[in-house]
């Protein structure tokens, strides 16, 4: 690393920009998914900015805390938000090599998301309600299948690229990666995990509050006001992160390599987000939510696909 004040400042600035960029874009992506979904169902779509409006509305509202809540309950939203945000801003977006890329590789990224989920689930248990427990228990279950599957996907990629370093993988995929059978398996598995991790249909439904089917929503039932705003924001960031990750890992074309200018990167990133969001909306529209106890089969499938991908990658 060059020790020049200018370059350091520049890099810091770049990283800060990236952080605020993802923060700004994330709710828009959520809004985009909702928009496409509404269109597909023939409804009038809400504005693209509706999620942002909701968040601001929540921020302004009074925050209600249950008497049995502990300090953890009030701290959790901030932790969840911050970890997800940091994680999201470490995923390459418009350019391959972010200044802070050496800080965390993709495993650390998954670790950060795990940290966020850890607190989310604990928050679900904190008030001591049956719904909170229900959501927490299901989330813990889903993630304990999704995480290994994710890890296998990472390993399949890393085996090919020779590293878990995000820029390295992206560079490899953009260059010699190309199409491989192992990658196809890994990609499908990744998508399945992403759906599960983001509490999307068919694993979970982000809009339901029907008691027996809730997972994610059940955990945050007791949150309100700015707590809820932070959690919603974190959820949006997570969705962005996963779509971004898919874009960076499997479809890195168009990203700015070190030394290249990044206007094209911007365009490519935006296009990928729009496409990803639309695809997700299509999926959610086309499928029904499955029973909770069908989820292990779904994730087991992801695990199996990722495993095959890894086997193919290793040989």
């Amino acid at each position: 690393m060059e020790i020049s004040i200018l370059s350091i400042t520049l890099k810091t600035l770049l990283q800060v920009l990236q952080a605020f960029l993802v923060l700004a874009v994330a709710p828009l992506l959520t809004g985009w998914v909702r928009m496409v979904k509404a269109r597909m169902l023939g409804r009038t779509a809400p504005s693209l900015f509706q999620p942002w409006r909701d968040i601001f509305r929540l921020l302004r509202k009074e925050t209600i805390v249950a008497p049995s809540a502990s300090r953890l309950f009030t701290m959790a939203p901030t932790i969840i938000f911050v970890t997800t945000w940091i994680a999201a801003s470490l995923v390459p977006t418009v350019m391959v090599k972010l200044p802070l890329a050496p800080v965390a590789d993709i495993i650390a990224l998954i670790g950060l998301l795990g940290l966020s989920r850890f607190f989310l689930v604990l928050a679900g248990l904190d008030i001591g309600t049956s719904f909170g427990g229900l959501g927490a228990s299901r989330e813990a279950f889903i993630s304990s299948l999704a995480e290994p599957a994710m890890m296998l996907v990472i390993f399949a990629l890393a085996t090919l690229a020779g590293s878990t370093d995000l820029p390295t993988i992206a560079t490899y995929m953009a260059g010699s990666g190309g199409m491989r059978l192992s990658l196809l398996f890994a990609f499908i598995a990744f998508l399945m995990v992403a759906v599960a991790e983001n509490a999307r249909i068919p694993v979970d439904n982000p809009t339901t509050h029907l008691e027996l089917t809730m997972v994610h929503e059940a955990m945050i039932l007791e949150y309100s006001g700015h707590h809820l705003a932070l959690i919603e924001l974190a959820a949006a960031l997570k969705l962005l992160l996963y779509i971004g990750l898919a874009a960076c890992l499997f479809l890195p074309w168009g990203m700015a390599l070190p030394g290249q200018a990044f206007p094209y990167g911007f365009a490519a990133w935006g296009a990928k987000l729009l496409l990803g969001g639309a695809a997700l909306a299509a999926l959610e529209t086309g499928r029904a939510k499955m029973r909770v106890f069908r989820v292990p089969e779904f994730l087991g499938g992801a695990l199996l696909l990722a495993f095959i991908g890894l086997l193919l990658a290793g040989v």
Partner: peptide
């Protein structure tokens, strides 16, 4: 990130908090 979030909340959020019984749907 925590400092930033804290600052943003300070600026943007109402920060009014009330203790109220459990809702639990």
């Amino acid at each position: 990130g925590g400092v930033a979030a804290f600052a943003l909340l300070r600026i943007l959020a109402s920060n009014k908090t009330r203790i109220s019984p459990i809702w639990d749907c």
